[in-house]
Computed example of a mutant assay.
Amino acid sequence: MTMVLAVANQKGGVAKTTTVASLGAALAGLGRRVLVVDLDPQGCLTFSLGHNPDRLERSVHDVLVGDIPAKEVLLDTGDGVSLLPATIDLAGAEALLLMRPGREFALKRALAPLLDLFDVVVIDCPPSLGVLTLNGLTAAQQVLVPLQCETLAHRGVGQLLRTVSEVQQITNPDLVLLGALPTLYDARTTHSRDVLADVSDRYAMPVLAPPIPRTVRFAEASASGATVLSGRKNKGADAYRELAQSLSAHWFDGAALVTFESVP
């Protein structure tokens, strides 16, 4: 069975796109067939995987509102994952989708013919709670919430969790909240550790391990059009590889999810 994972947080700057790109590459490194979907009109995922959104003739926008089969829009990347890209045209998709019946199901319908081709589909939701994010959550089986390890970063998480609850009640009753992924983590500070404990207590959701460390390697990788896994050994790549191994074992082998509570 194909696992469809939405990565969502309406707050920008929490390493959502970095997580989608790096986790996708790490899963591909484990031999999984991976598709990543860029649902952000800014096209940051598309750019970070080596494609210029300004030069693409077709994108996920054409799939959602133009009825072009998703398979005809897929692109290859240097990290071994397939990409359903985004362009700025996607900014107009929300208005067009609002006029359509069943608008929340557009992405799920588009991805259905692709599921036999991939083991994992990872969806990069935009930094908002609009129709595109609702499409991502409706198409997914699980949702992962990247969370920057700073106090102000969790403002808005409650609103996202309410949206997830509403999606569970209306369009996707099988959606599972996988948990929060700590990002931009600085193990040297007590503050980062305190934020993780507060998130676990306040929202009663799992906090996945390992935390993703703060490192300049992520910015360098995005600028080069590849993920942090394609460069020389670094702690950011190691963290995403460890996360991919944990999730792959959880999804396909039935292993327990590795969380902060389960780490000795």
Rank of each mutant, 00 (worst) to 15 (best):
A26L: 08
A93V: 08
L229R: 00
V199L: 13
I68T: 14
G236Y: 03
P127I: 07
R217D: 04
D76F: 14
R202W: 13
L117F: 14
S165Q: 15
L160W: 08
L181H: 00
S165M: 14
Q148F: 03
T189V: 08
S262Y: 08
A15P: 02
V216K: 05
Q168S: 10
R109E: 11
N135C: 11
V121S: 03
H191R: 13
I88E: 14
E72P: 09
V4A: 03
A223K: 12
V73S: 04
A209L: 10
L208T: 09
V176Q: 12
L147H: 07
A255H: 10
D79V: 02
Q142S: 15
R162L: 14
V120M: 06
S230W: 05
F105L: 15
L74M: 11
P146C: 08
E261T: 12
L49P: 03
A180E: 05
Q148G: 02
E261D: 15
L147N: 10
D174M: 12
D38W: 00
G12Y: 09
L115A: 09
L184T: 06
P41D: 04
E166D: 14
A237N: 01
P213H: 04
S128K: 00
N135Y: 02
T215S: 13
G29D: 06
Q141T: 06
P101H: 14
S200Y: 12
D76E: 15
D54W: 13
L97W: 00
T151C: 13
A204E: 15
H51L: 11
G156I: 13
L208P: 02
P53H: 05
G24W: 00
K71L: 13
N135Q: 07
N172C: 06
H154F: 15
A26Y: 07
D124C: 07
A249H: 06
L184H: 07
V81K: 06
L84H: 01
V122S: 03
Y203S: 08
Q141W: 11
D186W: 10
R55K: 15
T227S: 02
D253K: 14
V65S: 03
R232L: 12
V207H: 01
G136W: 05
V65R: 00
V216W: 03
D54N: 15
L132A: 02
S59T: 06
V145F: 12
L27Q: 05
A6K: 02
T2K: 01
V60C: 07
L96K: 12
A197F: 11
T189L: 10
P127D: 05
L229M: 08
A223M: 13
P146Y: 01
V65W: 04
Q168E: 11
G102W: 04
L45H: 02
D67M: 06
V121K: 00
L152H: 14
P101C: 13
A112I: 11
K71M: 12
A8M: 08
V207E: 04
L35N: 01
Q10H: 13
A249P: 01
V167C: 11
T227C: 07
V122I: 15
A249R: 12
T171R: 09
H61L: 09
D194E: 15
K11P: 09
G179T: 04
V176T: 13
R33C: 04
D38C: 10
K71A: 15
L5A: 03
P213W: 05
P182S: 11
H51F: 11
V73F: 02
Q42M: 11
M1V: 12
A219C: 09
V199A: 04
